[in-house]
Design a protein around this nucleic acid. Structure first.
Length: 600
RNA sequence: GCGCUUGUAGCUCAACCGGAUAGAGCACCAGCCUUCUAAGCUGGGGGUCGCAGGUUCGAGUCCUGCCAAGCGCGCCA
């Protein structure tokens, strides 16, 4: 008897596909009977209706095809309708408006979705459309010069949601963080920490205007001093020996900090400098790792830029460009002729001083990605890097690959407010709200939900006051509350001395005839197609929108009807419906790494 | 100046490959708790979809021009 609510293959195929099949059949018939031209290639698009009075599904194929068929849309629609084969699932077909064909689906077949959700459980909604293709998703990749701030948080939430969505629809996803552990920023970091360290040792010296001045710098210096005591101490007068003036003294802050970096390297020597440098970066990177992990963001790989430099990948990449004739020398530097490949101007890859530019290692990094055989490469960048896209695409082309393999998704920075007050942020000055602070204030769930709620390219105002308020203004509670309410109903069942009879409920689904029930069922049925679209369009906010809609339909239903009624058949049918709702809420929130508390 | 992104209700945002009467939340107004959690529900007001043209059966969505905001235009990363 357990087979009662096993869904047969026919039914698990989506209604949408079935209707597309019927339409294809109709076109075939029209062509053979000569009623429409053989050469017409109809693009059949079946959509769910937005208005129940338009039936369940609709197609505009008569409208789009009318011109090519040299007829008017209504006439064509009539022909199509007449040619549609009989089907026991479609109860009615109507011609509507300027030429829409609306399909009304038999209610009994719509109930099957409840059985399907029950059978598939956590797997409901997953698909195989990705066909196991390998996708690399690189995101956050913030320089390890300080803790992640709320701007990075959006990239983290969005990036992991995109990765998880792609995974859910059948792609093999590789999540990666590119660690910029080489270059001048890192030297500034090491020098900043060292200067704080010297202060702790008792040396008196001015702090450079261009150094990192956040509290975390001092914290790291304290840690180092605790473990290494005065090992790295050097007298202040030696540090400042023959250094140019800093900006406040009328000098150039860039030149000044570079001079201090040079002094640091000289005074510590290669080996000690390297140790010191490494302690700084390790501390910060560990912090970032913990932070992201606690935020529910996990990576398969942390990819080191320094590694690329050290294993000659950069040399190899540049050599490959040279072999392809994409490089030339000018003014003592080596240039990549990216303007021939869609960039606005050529770019330097190796400076006059013999050092590679950041761009050079990025070329090497992308060569590495290509060589690893990913079918798709997804980079998630802050929107301020948009000007960088053409040169990276040019590099990929020059390396002999198809640049369409690379998809760059931009995330706008969130503008932070505390109520009316706009919060200015600067990494250098250390004056920013960290992701950790945000998480501590609002919690992981609200932070993730809030970040992903809006389209990524949309500028977003993040009001801390609102996000930190644990009130009903926070939409995550609304969705979680729907889940908790279902749990509560099931808990009440015992208290009333009833037992849930699952098969009885499944056999009684046709008793679910209330408007609210039909509406809820229809939303549940949309979950798989919504998930697929959200994934393929890299738009996790669609999932959030959906969950809010589902929660609304449930809350409305909850207020309109009692579930735990005396009549067992209705009761069990309703329990199966809200059980399915619970499952979909859980699947959706789970995908977003948001918890599902059983009571609130 | 050039390029990219954005512009939708008082505020924050949706709108599926161009579809039928542009939708939510917040705020505002009026209601609903002896009944499964009121972090909920019901009803109401609120819109020149930045502006002006164009494309077509049909445009918030596509094209052109303008306006405004953000960002980018380094031998920085």
């Amino acid at each position: 008897m357990s087979a009662i609510f096993i869904v047969d293959i026919q039914h698990s195929k989506s209604m949408k596909q079935k209707i597309e099949g019927l339409l294809l059949h109709a076109f075939g018939a029209l062509k053979t009977s000569g009623l429409i031209d053989q050469t017409l290639e109809p693009q059949i698009v079946v959509e769910r209706t937005r208005d129940a009075s338009h039936g369940d599904f609709t197609t505009n194929v008569a409208l789009t095809l009318a011109k090519a068929a040299k007829t008017n849309p209504k006439l064509l629609a009539e022909k199509i309708i007449a040619a549609l084969p009989q089907d026991n699932i479609v109860t009615n077909v109507e011609l509507a408006g300027p030429g829409f064909i609306n399909f009304f689906v038999d209610r009994n077949s719509q109930y099957d979705i409840i059985k399907r959700i029950h059978n598939e459980g956590q797997r409901f909604g997953l698909s195989t459309i990705g066909a196991g293709k390998k996708v690399q998703v690189e995101f956050v990749s913030a320089n390890p010069t300080g803790p992640l701030h709320v701007g990075h948080g959006r990239g983290a939430a969005y990036g992991s949601a995109v990765a998880d969505l792609l995974n859910a629809v059948g792609f093999k996803v590789h999540r990666e963080y590119y660690v910029n552990d080489a270059g001048r920023q890192m030297d500034i970091l090491a020098t900043s920490i060292w200067l704080r360290y010297l202060e702790i040792c008792g040396e008196v010296l001015p702090f450079p205007s261009n150094a990192y001045r956040g509290d975390y710098i001092r914290d790291i210096a304290v840690d180092i001093h605790n473990s290494a005591s005065n090992e790295y101490r050097r007298p202040a007068e030696l540090v400042l020996e023959s250094t140019p003036p800093d900006e406040p003294e009328g000098g150039d802050k860039e030149i000044y900090i570079d001079a201090l970096i040079a002094r640091t390297k000289t005074l510590l020597g290669t080996s000690l400098y390297r140790d010191f440098f490494q302690m700084g970066i390790t501390t910060i990177l560990d912090d970032i790792r913990d932070d992201l992990k606690e935020f529910g963001v996990n990576y398969q790989q942390w990819f080191s830029e320094r590694q690329l430099m050290e294993d000659n990948s950069v040399d190899t990449a540049i050599a490959r460009l040279r072999a392809g004739g994409h490089l030339y020398e000018q003014d003592g530097a080596t240039w990549f002729a990216s303007s021939k490949l869609g960039d606005e101007k050529d770019r330097v890859v190796k400076r006059e001083n013999g050092q590679y530019t950041y761009f050079a290692s990025d070329i090497a990094y992308h060569m590495n990605k290509l060589d690893r055989g990913f079918d798709h490469i997804v980079n998630i960048w802050g929107a301020d890097h948009h000007g960088y896209i053409p040169r990276i695409k040019a590099a990929i082309t020059a390396l002999g690959a198809d640049e369409s393999k690379l998809k760059v998704l931009l995330v706008q920075f969130a503008t932070l407010y505390r109520g009316e007050e706009k919060i200015q942020m600067s990494t250098r000055s250390g004056d920013f709200v960290t992701l950790r602070q945000l998480r501590n204030e609002v919690g992981k769930d609200a932070a993730r939900f809030f970040y992903v709620m809006r389209r990524s390219e949309q500028h977003m105002d993040f009001d801390l006051k609102l996000a930190t308020s644990k009130s009903n203004e926070n939409p995550v509670f609304y969705v979680q509350y729907a889940f908790a309410r279902v749990c509560s109903v099931f808990r009440q069942l015992d208290g009333k001395g009833w037992e849930r009879n699952l098969p009885l409920g499944m056999n009684s689904l046709n008793l679910l005839t209330e408007e609210h029930e039909i509406a809820l069922i229809s939303i549940l049925a949309r979950y798989p197609e919504m998930l697929e679209r959200a994934a393929l369009q890299y738009e996790p906010h669609q999932l959030i929108q959906y969950l809010r809609e589902l929660a609304t339909a449930f809350h409305t239903y909850y207020n309109a009807h009692q579930f735990l009624v005396d009549e067992a058949q209705i009761r069990d049918a309703r329990l199966n419906l809200i059980g399915a709702t619970k499952q979909v809420l859980s699947n959706g929130l789970g995908l977003l790494n948001i918890t599902t508390p059983e009571s609130m």
